[in-house]
Design a binder for these strands. Structure first.
Lengths: 249, 249
DNA sequence: TCCAATGTTGAAAACTCGGTGAATATTATG
DNA sequence: CATAATATTCACCGAGTTTTCAACATTGGA
């Protein structure tokens, strides 16, 4: 069965070796993806903003700006799924990449099959969690979020958020409807090494509630999951109950 | 950074070469994992049921039953994360494994660091995504479970579960149709040092029944197995062999 | 029947959460 | 470069929830 459910997904390939970038592009195009190539980290960031790709394939080893640095810059403005391309045997790179927010990694050299299989797996995973991006997000009639412009509007008033508040809100909203654990929030917003400081999360959730909630004591947007973490209300709620899903026996 | 967050995770190593299994065990134990060895596929399946490991390391190349066959059998009853051990260069094996539901693969030969890195990475990944298979679980027309979202629906009402109740329900449902002993439940839900506190299990089973069962005195979902433990009803095998004991409501 | 295993109740202990304010670090500005 | 403004870290408390613990009631099977 030809799996064209990913047709026209836009994929940005970042690799300084043009031969490799070309190789990847040909394979992905063969499977129906739209592919953009970039040969330097700076280009990648620019293209990310201009083209809003659905995924980034990112080589770790690059001259001027390396893959991790690019990943860091990407993650400042986007949650687009990223697959790192690492050299064989560089376990540290892979771990580091995952900790820094990459979604998966592929070890060079790899086969066309492996490439597309990983790419599709990550897209499926992300799609399932609703990793939308791009437009203004209408949470409800009062609250509107524009992550591209880094703006938060509450009843037509522009709310000023501090950087950490913004990052926290961002991750909560990107996972609206799903519970994020303290661990997850801390490692996404503060960094992996802050995993045992759940206090920060409470504090900043509190800040956000003071700024966004009509009645901060009875929050409507950021809900607490006692003993676990927090979840942003599922404002997308489009009958996720019983859509078709192949039973994975 | 001494990362002992995976301490006491139980890992089943399946490899017909005892030297290799031993090598893996020593390395994993050095990092605080509990390791069980199996040298044949059949043993693996049995141990999976008895010991409920948190992860399986599975050699592909084995005499009587090969790794893929074992993986198939594992996936029939469990979503436990599986890492395949493949020979160098056998790219097809890796792809096949991933497609069959393996979570990662490690190419032989490998270094101790690579081994533990991969194991931890997969555990982290699984932990982050709740380990669920991504589907809403329809127990019956009344009870629906969404472990991804940490939601329990009873007749379209969202049921609030406390963290321990949730963990207990999770493990019971993960093994629906199978009896879990007090020992197994205690070590999964409370930690293995609680093995002689069976009354905790009774207490929390009671809590769950109060919240989920129409008639908590005649439970339909969480069944007691006198002298052994508890069993979540085998909701996946509907209408087959219903003749055992189904008291008319 | 009797007894061990299971179910139920309630109160104490431990922990989580929201909230405040001060100390420290970072960034912007004259 | 010094200072002010802003942001983050950290310590602490009361209220409320969850877990632990113990005591008692009930059940099912030899």
């Amino acid at each position: 069965m030809p799996d064209d459910s990913f047709k026209n997904k836009k994929i940005l390939v970042v690799d300084d070796e043009e031969r490799m970038a070309r190789f990847i592009r040909l394979n992905l195009e063969h499977d129906g993806f739209l592919v953009i190539e970039a040969y330097r980290g700076m280009d990648a960031i620019r293209i990310l903003r201009e083209q809003l790709p659905d995924m980034i394939l990112l080589d770790v080893m690059m001259p001027d700006i390396d893959g991790f640095e690019v990943l860091r810059m990407v993650r400042e403005v986007s949650t687009v799924p990223v697959i790192m391309l690492t050299a064989k045997g560089e376990e540290d790179d892979r771990i580091k990449g995952l900790e820094m927010g990459a979604d998966d990694y592929i070890t060079k050299p790899f086969s066309p099959r492996e490439l597309t299989s990983r790419v599709k797996a990550v897209l499926r995973r992300v799609e399932a969690t609703g990793g939308g991006s791009g437009e203004v997000i209408d949470v409800d009639e009062h609250l509107k979020l524009d992550f591209d412009r880094r703006e938060v509007w509450l009843d037509d008033k522009l709310i000023k958020l501090r950087p950490t508040e913004y990052r926290l809100l961002y991750h909560l909203v990107q996972n609206a409807g799903w519970v994020l654990t303290y661990d997850q929030i801390l490692s996404k917003v503060w960094g992996y090494e802050y995993r045992d400081e759940p206090h920060y999360v409470r504090l900043y959730v509190n800040y956000l509630r003071q700024k966004l909630e009509k009645d901060p004591a009875n929050p409507k947007y950021i809900l607490t999951e006692r003993g676990v973490g927090y979840r942003f209300v599922d404002f997308r709620r489009k009958n996720t109950r019983d859509d078709e899903k192949s039973p994975a026996v």
